[in-house]
């Protein structure tokens, strides 16, 4: 028996918004520690890794490990039927081929339930090596989204260059070029409003704007984003979900032909 109760269904709504354009379907692996998801997009350029801790739920019960293949488009349809502050419960029997999703309003005057068919998905789990990243940039997630959106008007690729002084985002295309430089913030009231850089070695890598913009769909989940980079390895874009877990996106760099 699997059962998880979340006090704010809006959190799961935002999570689905953050992955539905990269993944059509995904396997949710449930265990007593929580719910995990790891899946690549069809082009094998990016990977979504999500972890929701059992302790982040109001109630969480998972007697046996369970892998649920979910069509994300279907789940988005169901999530459209609730309000952000509805309480939601997801439930499945062991070896079930359906998942039940229930919503209740806070005053319990409206209860609804939806049953969704589960799928058998071929799972391809990738081993992600432990990496000591050369640069770790923490910045406001809204600022990162703004830069990705602004610069993708000018070109398909974004160069991210990180040094001790700061981080520079650059692009160029038919109409010209664009650069945005961010320096480490010297004073800030709240940690999430600042830009901080931990660096052991300068790194400069090129990435596809299209994917970065898709990752930015996670912006409503967190005020801060963490970018981790090392030479010639995939970029990690991480959004912490308060008390519940995190979403990490991995993006393979563009390389010289």
């Amino acid at each position: 028996m699997f059962e998880a109760r979340l006090l704010k269904s809006g959190q799961l709504k935002k999570i689905l918004e953050a992955i539905k354009e990269l993944l059509k379907e995904a396997t949710f692996d449930c265990s007593d520690s929580g719910i995990q998801l790891q899946a690549m997009d069809d082009a094998h350029v990016s990977l979504v890794s999500m972890c929701l801790k059992s302790t982040g739920f109001d109630k969480f019960r998972c007697d046996r490990n369970l892998s649920m293949g979910i069509n994300l488009e279907s789940m988005v349809k169901i999530m459209k039927c609730c309000s952000n502050d509805d309480i939601m419960t997801i439930k499945a029997q062991d070896n079930a081929d359906t998942l039940t999703i229930m919503f209740e309003t806070k005053n319990q005057e409206k209860m609804s339930d939806y049953e969704m068919k589960l799928m058998n998905l071929d799972q391809e789990h990738l081993g992600i090596p432990e990496t000591n990243y050369s640069c770790i940039i923490k910045m406001p997630s809204s600022e990162f989204a703004r830069i990705c959106r602004d610069l993708s008007q000018f070109g398909d690729s974004l160069v991210i260059a990180c040094t001790k002084e700061g981080v520079k985002f650059s692009t160029s295309g038919d109409i010209g070029s664009a650069n945005v430089k961010l320096s480490q913030t010297s004073t800030f009231d709240k940690e999430e409003e600042g830009v901080t850089i931990e660096m052991t070695q300068a790194v400069c890598l090129t990435f596809a704007c299209r994917y970065l913009n898709l990752f930015c769909k996670a912006t409503p989940l967190s005020t801060q984003v963490i970018l981790s980079m090392s030479g010639d390895v995939p970029l990690v874009v991480e959004y912490q979900i308060e008390e519940l877990g995190c979403i990490r996106y991995y993006l393979a760099p563009k390389i010289e032909e």
């Binding site: 990016s46 596809a208 991995y250 563009k254």
Partner: peptide, 14 residues
């Protein structure tokens, strides 16, 4: 020019 690399050349299937 630059070309897009694949994630599977960095991470191996388990």
């Amino acid at each position: 020019g630059m070309k897009q690399s694949s994630l599977t050349s960095f991470f191996k299937t388990k």
